[in-house]
Simulated scan of single mutants.
Amino acid sequence: MPRLYVITFLATLLGILGGVFALNVAVDAYGVFWPADETPEVRAFEPNTRFRKIEYLSTRCHKFNAFIMGDSRSSSYLVQDVDKFFDVKSYNLSVSGESIVGVLKTLQGLARANCVPQLVVYPISTDGFGFNVADFALSHEQLLRIYHPLIDQSVTLLEKFSRYALNYSITLTSIQVLYDRLKGRPGFLIYDFATGNHQTLFARLDKIAPCPAVVTPATDRIRQWFNWLAQLQTFLGAHDIKLVLVMNPLPYPSMLSTGLAGTQILLHELSKYADGIYALSLTDPRLRQPNMFIDQVHFKPDMVRDMFQQKNFQSFDRLSKEFSEAFKACGIN
Score class of each variant (00 low, 15 high):
Pro2Glu: 09
Ile7Ala: 14
Phe9Cys: 13
Thr12Pro: 09
Leu13Arg: 02
Leu17His: 05
Phe21Ala: 11
Leu23Pro: 02
Ala29Lys: 04
Asp37Leu: 10
Asp37His: 09
Glu38Trp: 04
Thr39Arg: 15
Thr39Cys: 05
Phe51Asp: 07
Phe51Pro: 09
Glu55Met: 09
Leu57Glu: 09
Ser58Val: 05
Cys61Asp: 00
Cys61Glu: 00
His62Tyr: 01
Asn65Tyr: 00
Arg73Ile: 08
Ser74Asp: 04
Ser76Val: 05
Asp81Asn: 12
Asp81Trp: 03
Lys84Thr: 14
Lys84Gln: 15
Tyr91Asn: 06
Ser94Asp: 01
Val95Gln: 07
Ser96Glu: 12
Glu98Asn: 10
Ser99Cys: 07
Lys105Asp: 04
Lys105Gln: 11
Thr106Cys: 00
Asn114Thr: 05
Leu119Met: 14
Val121Gly: 08
Tyr122Pro: 03
Asp127Glu: 13
Gly128Glu: 11
Phe131Ser: 04
Asn132Arg: 07
Ala134Asp: 14
Ala137His: 12
Leu138Phe: 00
Ile151Asp: 07
Val155Tyr: 03
Thr156Asp: 08
Ala165Gly: 05
Ser169Gly: 01
Ser169Glu: 02
Thr171Glu: 13
Leu172Tyr: 02
Thr173Leu: 03
Val177Gln: 06
Val177Asp: 08
Leu178Pro: 01
Leu178Ile: 02
Arg185Trp: 00
Phe188Val: 11
Phe188Pro: 01
Ile190Glu: 06
Ile190Gln: 10
Tyr191Cys: 03
Phe193Trp: 07
Ala194Gly: 13
Gly196Asp: 01
Leu201Ser: 09
Phe202Tyr: 11
Phe202Ser: 10
Phe202Asp: 12
Ala203Trp: 03
Arg204Gly: 04
Leu205His: 06
Leu205Lys: 12
Ala209Lys: 05
Thr216Trp: 02
Asp220Gly: 09
Arg223Asn: 13
Trp225His: 14
Gln231Val: 06
Gln233Arg: 15
Thr234Lys: 15
Ala238Cys: 07
Ala238Leu: 11
Lys242Glu: 15
Leu243Gln: 12
Leu243Ser: 07
Leu243Lys: 08
Val246Met: 14
Val246Glu: 08
Leu250Ala: 07
Leu260Ser: 04
Leu260Lys: 12
Ala261Ser: 06
Thr263Val: 02
His268Ser: 14
Ser271Ile: 03
Ser271Tyr: 03
Tyr273Lys: 06
Leu282Ala: 10
Thr283Gln: 11
Asp284Met: 01
Asp295His: 12
Phe299Trp: 15
Lys300Ala: 13
Arg305Thr: 14
Gln309Leu: 13
Ser315Pro: 03
Arg318Asn: 13
Lys321Asp: 12
Ser324Thr: 09
Glu325Phe: 05
Gly331Ala: 05
Ile332Lys: 07
